[in-house]
Structure formats: structure tokens, C-alpha cells
Design a protein around this nucleic acid. Structure first.
Length: 297
DNA sequence: CCTTGTGTTCTCCG
DNA sequence: CCGGAGAACACAAG
């Protein structure tokens, strides 16, 4: 379940490795994963290069430039193209320096530690170097769009606490007028972007607020605690290269180190790290929700 | 059956 | 009846 810290970790890993390299081959193994047709997708990418990777919420934006400009001054115009990549729940972007073809040269391996494997959907080649897009449940997508459409797409995302300064009074005012649970509010990508199920539970634990509480009923002090904990939770997760709960790996195919540092998520039945109470699990906003009823009110 | 991020559709309420 | 908010559903596969 890649959320902001996992997507940001991948973004940074890929920026170090694939920028300004000519895309020599694009293989689409599962056509419906690319949003415009397979033929068009390949045509728009082949022979070009990526010169920048941005992120808005959990969405990655790869800028596409003609390879004749590789390494040179980046000049972008409205007609230029971008590739959007959303990992949804089980998408992966794994970069490999060497040709790491599995034994026998087949791509039907059931070993998730090897690429390509049976969940590999798209392969980008930069000469011998490869970037694999894997997706077990195939909710993720890759899509070529015009740069001028970006503004409209970005408008669907709220600020993310990492790239943007957020005014507390505005944050409080907007929470106060919502009649739904604070968990649903924090999961709402139009309100703030980047948080998913894991980090919403973590933020609410640290803020001492129960997830089912309605936004309108929260006290100013409680909203302040939520506000103050969002950035630290995300930064800590980025510094630990993300949470590998089941499927997530970084841009080099390695697991994250954040799972051991979580307070409540996936700790049902275990002792609270602050008060030794038992962590409980329930359902809020349709999602599995973990909390400590002693530390949260 | 359960799991989840997001887009779409349905329902409710004033 | 309208608009908007929120809830429910759809999606896929293990």
C-alpha cells in the first residue's frame, strides 16, 4: 500500500537512476494497464527520455523530453508530454542496472523477489538497464498526457505537508465543518494528499484522537495535535524508506524499514508501545482501523 | 469472505 | 427538486 512516503522513496530512487537516458524499448505485457492504447503509449515513449520526476499526492509524474535534448537545458512547453504512474495498492517500480533475467529467460517466475516475474506488466529499457512496473492486483496505471493537463489534475489534490506549508487556522476551519469521521477526512486526497490507511492510523494515535470522531466535534487542541503530527510521521517514514506491509518495495526492489516503528497499524492484539494496553482493530470509513483506546479519546 | 486507493454512483437531508 | 455531502459500490486477485 504505497502512500506518500513510499511513493516519495521510489521517486527519489528513480531520479538518481533513470533521468536523461534514452528509452530504447517499451514492452507492455498487460495492455489495459496503460490508459491510452498500447501502441500509442509505446510510440510516445520510445526514443525519448525522462528528464524529471515529480509527485502530487501518491501520483508520480514523469516529464518526457526528446532524447536530442538529453542532459542539456530543460525547456518545456505546453505541448510536451508527461507519463503519470499510479501504483494504487500493489504497484511497484523497480530499477535494475544489470540485465537480471531469471533462469531460463522466462518472465513467469512466481518469486516476487525476482524481476521480471508473473506480475510484471510494463518494462522500460534504457539500453541494458531496465525499469519494471509490476502490479499484482492491476489497479495501478500508466498514462501519457499533455503537460497542459497537469494543472487540472493537480487541482484534485490537496496540499501534502511535505511540499507545502499549510495554515493551521485554515486546516482547523475545514475540519470543523465536516460531518464525517476524522479518519475519512484525513484519507480524503482533496483535503490533504498523501495519507493512506497506515499513516492516518499512526497520526491519530500520536494525536490521541479516536478515528471515528466527527470532524465537527473535535476540539481546537485535538486538531492542533493532528496538524503537528502529520509532517513528522511522513518524514520519519521517508527516512525509513517506507513501510513494507506485504507488497511495497523501493525503487531498487528493497523493502522499507518503517514497519517496526509503527505504533498501531498492523499491531492488532499487541501491546501499545506507550501504555501497554492491547491495540484494537475496528472498521472506520470502510477501512481496517487500528487504535489504542487508552491513549486515544 | 476479507484486504485497499480512487473514481463513480447512490442516497440522504435541508 | 436541487446541491452538496457522505456513504456505498466497483475494480482485481490472492
Amino acid at each position: 500500500m504505497p502512500e506518500l512516503p513510499e511513493v516519495e522513496t521510489i521517486r527519489r530512487d528513480l531520479e538518481k537512476n533513470i533521468l536523461n537516458q534514452k528509452i530504447t524499448k517499451v514492452e507492455v505485457l498487460l495492455p489495459r494497464i496503460v490508459k491510452n492504447t498500447k501502441a500509442n503509449f509505446i510510440k510516445k515513449l520510445k526514443g525519448q527520455h525522462f528528464n524529471k520526476i515529480d509527485r502530487v499526492g501518491k501520483l508520480l509524474i514523469f516529464s518526457i523530453n526528446p532524447s536530442s535534448l538529453a542532459g542539456g537545458k530543460v525547456r518545456r512547453s505546453k505541448g510536451d508530454l508527461c507519463m503519470l504512474v499510479h501504483l494504487k495498492m500493489t504497484g511497484q517500480l523497480i530499477y535494475k542496472e544489470n540485465d537480471n533475467v531469471i533462469a531460463g529467460g522466462h518472465s513467469d517466475s512466481h518469486d516476487p523477489a525476482k524481476v521480471p516475474n508473473r506480475w510484471t506488466r510494463v518494462i522500460f529499457s534504457f539500453g541494458k538497464k531496465k525499469l519494471y512496473f509490476n502490479d499484482l492486483r492491476t489497479f495501478g496505471y500508466l498514462k501519457i498526457i499533455q503537460e497542459k493537463k497537469l494543472e487540472e489534475i493537480k487541482n484534485n489534490f490537496g496540499p501534502d505537508f511535505i511540499q507545502t506549508e499549510i495554515d493551521f487556522e485554515e486546516f482547523k476551519r475545514r475540519i470543523k465543518k465536516r460531518q464525517t469521521s476524522i479518519k475519512a477526512i484525513l484519507l480524503d486526497q482533496k483535503f490533504i494528499s498523501g495519507l493512506g490507511n497506515i499513516y492516518v492510523d499512526e497520526v491519530l494515535f500520536l494525536a490521541g484522537v479516536l478515528p471515528h470522531r466527527k470532524g465537527s466535534k473535535l476540539k481546537g487542541g485535538e486538531i492542533k495535535k493532528i496538524y503537528k503530527n502529520i509532517k513528522p510521521v511522513l518524514m520519519k517514514a521517508i527516512n525509513n524508506r517506507g513501510t513494507t506491509f506485504n507488497n511495497y518495495v523501493d525503487g531498487g526492489g528493497k523493502t522499507g524499514k518503517m514497519i517496526d516503528k509503527l505504533y498501531v497499524f498492523a499491531r492488532t492484539g499487541k501491546k501499545c508501545k506507550k501504555c501497554a494496553n492491547i491495540i484494537e482493530k475496528t472498521k472506520v470509513a470502510g477501512r481496517g482501523t487500528h487504535y489504542c483506546k487508552n491513549c486515544q479519546n
